[in-house]
């Protein structure tokens, strides 16, 4: 049964990489079921994240957000800060796709704080870029400028010319 769980996970990932997002969802749902049977929260966390990603490419952003929220809860329970940051970043981007910029900002700020704690300058740069765009969408140009300047500073530091 444990091997079946891992295989469903691998199968889901392969469907995803091939662009078969519906089949990816079916496999990852099976993986999730087995992870729950075993009380394997790491595997559960991976399944929720993979499901969220697949729903993004199916254009079902609300469903994706729900799966990313479960990923975030589990990352916090497992005390995995890097994964927590990644889940916040995914949620920020998903809410941007949903044009809910206030919520997007909440999650991008959460991502920014963790990136700073972890000394992840690339993550911090991405958070600033995203925040600049979300504030622009809201018409808050002062905040947009603040984050654009931070993004420029970090991009120079990391040598990211693009």
């Amino acid at each position: 049964r444990a091997a079946q769980g891992r295989t469903y996970g691998n199968l889901g990932n392969t469907h995803y990489l091939l662009g078969n997002f519906r089949n990816a969802v079916v496999s990852h749902e099976q993986r999730l079921l087995i992870a729950k049977e075993f009380g394997d929260r790491s595997a559960e966390r991976r399944a929720y994240c993979n499901l969220g990603n697949a729903y993004i490419f199916l254009g079902e952003f609300e469903v994706a957000a729900e799966h990313y929220k479960r990923t975030l809860q589990l990352a916090r329970q497992l005390q995995d800060r890097a994964v927590e940051a990644q889940a916040c970043y995914s949620l920020g981007n998903t809410y941007t796709l949903l044009q809910d910029y206030e919520r997007a900002i909440d999650y991008h700020l959460k991502h920014l704080i963790i990136a700073q704690d972890l000394n992840d300058r690339i993550g911090e740069g991405r958070a600033c870029w995203s925040l600049g765009n979300a504030y622009t969408a809201l018409g808050n140009h002062d905040q947009a400028m603040h984050f654009a300047e931070k993004h420029l500073e970090i991009s120079r530091e990391t040598g990211d010319r693009s």
Binding site: G9, R45, R46, I56, S90, N93, T96, Q99, S130
Partner: peptide
Amino acid sequence: PQRKHVIQVDSVQRWMEDLRHMTEVE
């Protein structure tokens, strides 16, 4: 103020490009 219906957010597009080949491996 009225918002534009469709926005092209470059940071989101970049995220989706990365996401397309990102999987949580067993």
